[in-house]
Each structure stands twice: as C-alpha cells, then as structure tokens.
Design a protein around this nucleic acid. Structure first.
Lengths: 145, 145
DNA sequence: GTGTTTGCAAACAATTTGCAGAATT
DNA sequence: AATTCTGCAAATTGTTTGCAAACAC
C-alpha cells in the first residue's frame, strides 16, 4: 500500500510556497526553508515538490530559463515573464476557454487544457528602464530570496 | 567586430530543422546531422542552435519534459503536446491578439507577446488508446529519429 | 514493528565552455 | 593574416536516485 505519512519538511515546503507569489525554483525553496530546517537537503526539496505536484497541490511551470518554477495556485491561470529581470508573475485574468474550442476545430487530437505565457517588461523594470538606460546585463538571475 | 562566417555545419543544422515539423531536441538534431557529418560534436550543435535562435532563424520551445525543442517556424503560433507520447505539434490557428489586450488591462507591466501550449492526446495516440488499453509506460521518449 | 521519509552523496541529464587546431573571409 | 568556427573534453547546472538511519503511524 502507498500511504502518505506526515513530514514537517513537506509541511514547511508547502507552507513556504503558499506564502509566495513569485513562483520560486526548487533551489530558492531550498535556500529559504534552510532557515527553519538547516539540515534539510536539496534532494528532499525536490522529492517533496514533485510529490506535492503529483498530489495536485502545487503546479510546475517551465519558463525556459533553466530551472523549473513552482506555483501554489493550481487553478488554471496564465503567467507573465519579464525579459529584463526574469521574474515570473501571475496574470490576473481568467483563462480563455474558447482557445481550446478554436484549437480543437483544426486539430485531430483531443485537447484537454492549455497554458499561456506572456512576455514583456514587468512594472518594476519599466520604472528602472525609464530612469537610466542600458544598465548592463539583461535578465540576470534574481537573488535566492 | 562580430562578423558571421559561413559554416557547413550550421547550414546543415538549419536545413535539417527546416525539413522537420516535430520540433526536435538538440540531441535529435545531433543524432541526425551525424549521418552527413559524422564528426560533428554535440557542442557545435548547441552553439549553432543558440546562434540561430539569437539570429531569429529558429525558435526554442520549452515544454517541461527535460530537453528544449527547436522550431524552424519563427512566426508566432501555438503548440500542442501529447501527454501520451510526448510529441509536440503545431496548432494550425492564428494567435489570438486579444489575449494580450485582455492581459494588459489588468497588468502593470508591458506585454510584448505570448505563447500558448495545449495539452491532450494526439491523433495517433488516440487510435492506439481506443484499440488496446493501458499499454504500459506513459510518455516514453520518442526515438531519436 | 512496518513502511515512509530524510540526509547525504553519487549518479544523471542537459547544456555550456576553454582551448588548440581547422575553416572562412 | 585575422577571425570565426569546430571537435573534444571537462565543467556547470538542474534534477534524480540508492541507501542506511530517523521518523510516523
């Protein structure tokens, strides 16, 4: 049998994720959880994140910048990624179901869902960009916290 | 200065990609190009793919299944990924620009573009699924060719 | 006690990079 | 001749896994 046992590590990973809306990577989760659990290992973080994902309690999002990101919000919704700072945010709009209808019309497979990713410059970067231009490297990884 | 010099390797990578609509990974490109250029190295394939990408001649698509895929079609368009066999296909529909308008309305950053990925079961898998059920592993990597 | 979860380290997979030599201009 | 590009191998990065000990039930 495959019963699920309690683990404070898993609990705190879930709790940490729930309190964030920046869609952290496994490594960001690890770095932060380490404050409360200095002995937790990266392996445990990965194991729990994928367990939580398969339980449907978190969702994984691939944004093509190397590491996967994790989202505590499992309701279908769209994302935005900033080409300047690389941050990932939620887009506060309802997914457009009609897209799937449109897609199905010309597609021979069955369509069960979809995701969307918007690109551009986030609000914070836009301010900076307006002030002083060309401040060196684009898309530098944001710090662990 | 940063001039671009001809290379038969790059040429053949581009040519190979153009002839495919299955969005191969770097490794698939490598395995196939090797028939014409047995000495080509994986590093060269990666270097050229990202060069071509930065030249805007191919597009990279991340579908969260480990490896990035490459698409010779740089026109904006949507993709589909089969949860059964993992294949990635184009969706023959025009991107819906209104999505960006909708997203902009409630978002403080600037939106410059978007992509969408549909999920479901592809036409070929649907047939198989109807015939005999539960044929073992789901989502097994497709062969290199 | 039985079975699940952890920490650690080693294994893996995908991608990048340094360098000397080959190819292009 | 000056640069760019290649092959090779080593290095990085992100993620997974085997195993003995720790923990939950």
């Amino acid at each position: 049998m495959k019963t699920l046992k309690y683990s404070r590590q898993r609990e705190s990973i879930k709790e940490f994720l729930t309190g964030r809306q920046d869609h952290p990577t496994a490594d960001m989760v690890y770095t932060n959880i380490r404050r409360s659990y200095p002995n937790i290992s990266l392996g445990t973080v990965y194991r729990n994140l994928s367990l939580l994902e398969s339980l449907g309690e978190v969702r994984k999002i691939s944004c093509g910048d190397g590491a996967e990101r994790f989202d505590p919000n499992t309701e279908p919704h769209y994302h935005f990624m900033c080409r300047q700072c690389g941050c990932v945010q939620d887009i506060p709009m309802l997914p457009v179901g009609e897209l799937e209808t449109l897609a199905s019309e010309r597609f021979e497979g069955s369509i069960e869902g979809h995701t969307a990713m918007f690109y551009g410059v986030c609000g914070r970067c836009r301010e900076t960009e307006n002030g002083r231009r060309s401040m060196g490297k684009t898309l530098d990884k944001q710090s662990a916290m």
